[in-house]
Structure formats: C-alpha cells, structure tokens
Design a protein around this nucleic acid. Structure first.
Length: 463
RNA sequence: GGCCUGGUAGCCAAGCGGGAAGGCAGCGGUCUGCAAAACCGCUAUUCGCCGGUUCAAAUCCGGCCCAGGCCUCCA
C-alpha cells in the first residue's frame, strides 16, 4: 500500500486514486521569466520521483505541469528587452526544457501555457460570477473569500490573523476586502498585454490558470497536486477556493508539498550571492547526474541544505554506483550463483516498500547499497557468472526507471591500447611483473586505470 | 506577533516507544606478485539543551536554544 503525507489532512494516508490504476497529477510549473534555480529543481526532482515511482509500481500517470507565461515578471522582463511577451517567454521555456533534460526529469504529459488557455479561464471566471463568488471592481474581477466558508483548510491559516495591509497589493487595484484575490486584471495600457474577452479587457490573475488548466486536462476532481511549501498559501488555498466554488466538488484528494532547499544553511537569495542555477553548477563542471542524485536523496518533506561539498559527495556516490554497474561486465564465467536471484528479490522488495512509505528515498537506497555490497562479496570471491551479471544489471536498469542515475555512455579504447592491456596480461602470466607494472603505469599516465579481477583485467577511464 | 518544519558521527542522511540503516571522507587489516577494486574492522555508550511520563525515549509531553519557512502572486 502506498502512503503519502497529505497537507490537507496533515497526516499520512493510504493512497487510493479515483480510477483504479490511473493517477491524475498536477504540478505547479515555472514562471518563465528567468533561468530556474536549483531550489526550483528540488521541487521538480521530487515530483519526478513521485511520477516515476507511481509508474514503476504499475500506475498509469497522467500528469500536467503548467507554464506561467504571463504575469507581472514576464511582462516586465519582455518590456525591458523590448521584445514581445511570447518571444521572451519562449526563450525561457526552451531553457527550462533543456534543464529538464539535463536532470533527466520525465516530461509531463501536458505542459499547458497560461496564454493558450485564456478561454478556459474566462469560462471558469464566468461561472464564479454567475454563482456569486466573484465580483467586479473597477474593471477587475475578484474572488470573495468570505463566500467560501472552508477557506484556509489547506494552509490552516486563520484569516483573522492575516495582517491586513502587511504587503502592499502589487497591482494596486481596489478590492472589497483586502484578503480577496484577483481572478482577472483589468487591462493596463502601459503593459500592452491583455485579452479582449466577454468578461472584459484584461489578463488572468495567477491562481486561476492552475484551476482552469488542471480541470481541463484532469477533470474537476483529481488525485494529486504538488508544489513547494511556499505555494500552500495563498496559491493552493486559492485554487481550492475558486475550483470548489465553481464545481461544487472536491478539487484534489492528495496535496503533496516539498520543503525548501537552503544553501549553506541559508535561504538562497541573489543578494547573498548564494544563488545557483543549474547552469552555474554545470559551468563549474559538476556532474548533472550527481545534482539529480543530491536533490533526490533527501526526503522531500525535509529541508535540504545544499553545499558544494555535499554535491562532491554525491558525485562520488554516483561514480561508485556506476563503476559497480559497469565493472561487472568483465565476468564471463559460466558459473551461476543461485543466491543472486534471492538478493535481487530482497532488494527490490525493500526498494518498493520504503518508497511506498511517503517516498522514503533514503531507506530505499540503503536497500540498494546493501544489495551492492552482497553482490560484491560474491563477485570478488569468484562466485559469480555472466548470467548473474545479466540479472544484476537488469535489476539496476529496472530501478533506474525511478532513480535515473546510471550513466550509459559507452567507452572505447583504441586498438593499440587494448593490445597493450593484453600484452600486460601475458606478462603477468609469465610473471614478468616489471613489464606488467610498466604498462600499468604508462596507461595510468593516460588516465586509464587497470584493475585485476578473478575474471581478468578490467579498465576504466578517469574523467 | 500567529502558524509550521528541522537540529542524529568529520560531512550527508534514515529511524519516530524496546538492537543507532545507508552514503561520502578517513584510518587499520584481508585479498593481491605489487596495486587498484572489493571485503572486514574502527570512527555516535549516544541522537541541540534541560526537565517530565514510562519497566523502557533519538522517538511521547513541557520548557529553552539554534536554523529555516509561510502570513496575498517565491518551488
């Protein structure tokens, strides 16, 4: 049984999707006004793990990630560069898709853009107007929080405690109650970004896009909605209010939120200079797979303290993991060790069991590392055969559908180097160790490391 | 001020009432012609601090300290 911590109920619950074997999942995606930073990617990696794990255990996942391509920041950015909003956001969408690839994040089934769903948003707002949940004020449309009695159920916020006027209303529109939120913003001439619709000339507020697009692709009630904790209030709270007011149905069954990423124990911020984009790290030559591993390997509800030291540690772990995976190949023995199959079963069981418990990735990984240790023992004793190699590699590839940390790049050595290795093996057989060591040292200079195993000599390249 | 997380070895990180997982780094050993890799052992009599509950607490309760988040457009 899969269990998740549900922000809505504040406890771990057994997971039952609405339709058997199908999970409908919505992820709050990027606002495409700049490069995404590793804090953003922490959330996307968590969602990727969730997505992949659900598929791994047999669910069909239908997943939507929105792209916010119209808001104050994108409009401002485009204006500053003197290009169209589309030109501006297209650029950052492209970068985002590249970053997703770099981190091996599975692409959601739908990545709808807000600007391409104005019609759906207008329909939803009309519904809210008709039902009396929304009102016009100076050409903008607001949602009336007082009409939705269960407002606050997700975040646990007590509206009477909200400091009124604490933050200046960014858009400076008037509303009846300062706590009401905007559904539709009246067009501003100087912005030059608006749609002429039956509810007026304007552009959507932030929250409405997620309600409109999730319902379009997933239905009025769906299974899982994810995001960072900072989205709980107000964004997700408002999504619930507007969606449930419009449909009269429960919006989402399971809300999952991941904790923040800190950098050197502090909140990441540009002014502190501890702000990393993915590209910053790649420019420093860090292995992208290690970045994925680092973001993946801490439980999603715990704060993750990012440091370059921990990234280097992750690089070592990923390197060792891959060397184990590749290093088995040398074994061509006809032996067959019956125990390996059992060990695979055990490891797989542990892996699934732990991930099923609210994605306990650390425990599930420990099950895999224990497996590796056991295999190494058999391997180095010579109690291993090529069928076992196949079994173990298949298992690692199997779980890699979730983890995605295997590096599959094929490595080649030139013929003459391979001949040298053979020559060394012959020298060793002839007990001409001086020659053998000379060859080994020579290749080491060329960053090729030789290792003698019970099954012959294997090589690896240092990077 | 209100609400909410987290503080476990040198570093990262599980466990959340009854044996302190796992990873990285380090040291010693086994194996090896020598290496490398691997394996074994060592590195937390103790889980931020102080009290309390309990036969039993890292785990529950209370207080305190530290770090972080949210409190109307940050993942």
């Amino acid at each position: 049984m899969v269990r998740f911590y549900n922000t809505l109920t504040k406890k771990k619950e057994d997971f039952y999707p609405i339709e058997d074997k199908i999970v409908k999942m919505y992820t709050c995606g990027p606002t495409v006004y700049d490069f995404a930073h590793i804090g953003n990617f922490r959330a996307y990696v968590f969602e990727d793990l969730l997505h992949r794990f659900l598929e791994y255990i047999g669910y069909k996942v239908i997943r939507v990630m929105n792209i916010t391509d119209v808001d104050d920041k994108t409009i401002k950015g485009a204006k500053k560069e003197g290009i169209s909003l589309k030109e501006y956001t297209d650029r950052y969408i492209k970068y985002f898709l590249e970053d997703i690839n770099t981190l091996r994040l599975k692409k959601p089934d739908f990545m709808p853009r807000a600007t391409e769903h104005i019609k759906e948003m207008v329909e939803l707002i009309k519904k809210l107007l008709n039902k009396g949940y929304a009102y016009y004020k100076d050409g903008s449309i607001y949602f009336s929080i007082s009409k939705f009695s269960s407002y606050g159920k997700l975040s646990g916020i007590d509206l009477s405690n909200v400091k009124i006027g604490a933050s200046v209303d960014a858009d400076e529109y008037e509303k009846e109650d300062v706590r009401d939120f905007v559904l539709w913003k009246k067009a501003k001439e100087e912005e030059g970004v608006y749609w002429d619709t039956e509810i007026g000339k304007g552009r959507p507020g932030w929250h409405i896009e997620c309600s409109a697009m999730s319902m379009k692709y997933l239905g009025e009630t769906f299974d899982i909605h994810t995001g960072g904790v900072d989205n709980i209030f107000p964004h997700h709270e408002n999504e619930i209010a507007q969606s449930e007011s419009a449909t009269g149905k429960k919006f989402v069954n399971y809300w999952l939120h991941c904790a923040h990423l800190l950098v050197n124990g502090e909140k990441m911020s540009k002014s502190k200079g501890n702000f990393y984009t993915l590209r910053d790290l790649l420019n420093k030559n860090y292995n992208p797979v290690a970045i994925r591993y680092l973001l993946l390997s801490t439980h999603y509800r715990d704060p993750l303290n990012f440091t370059e030291q921990s990234l280097r540690q992750a690089e070592n772990t990923v390197r060792n993991y891959n060397e184990f995976y590749k290093g088995l190949n040398i074994c061509a023995s006809e032996k067959y060790n019956q125990m390996i199959k059992q060990e695979i079963e055990k490891a797989k069981k542990g892996f699934i069991k732990e991930l099923s418990d609210d994605l306990n990735i650390s425990s599930s990984l420990s099950s895999i590392f224990n497996f590796i240790k056991t295999v190494n023992i058999f391997f180095s004793k010579g109690e291993f055969g090529k069928e076992n190699v196949k079994e173990v590699k298949e298992f690692m590839e199997d779980i890699d559908r979730v983890l995605c940390i295997i590096e599959r790049k094929e490595e080649f050595l030139p013929e003459e180097i391979l001949d040298l290795i053979k020559e060394r093996e012959k020298a060793r057989k002839d007990r001409d160790f001086e020659k053998a060591d000379k060859i080994r040292e020579f290749l080491k200079q060329k960053k090729i490391i030789l290792e003698d195993t019970p099954y012959g000599t294997r090589w690896k390249k240092l990077d």
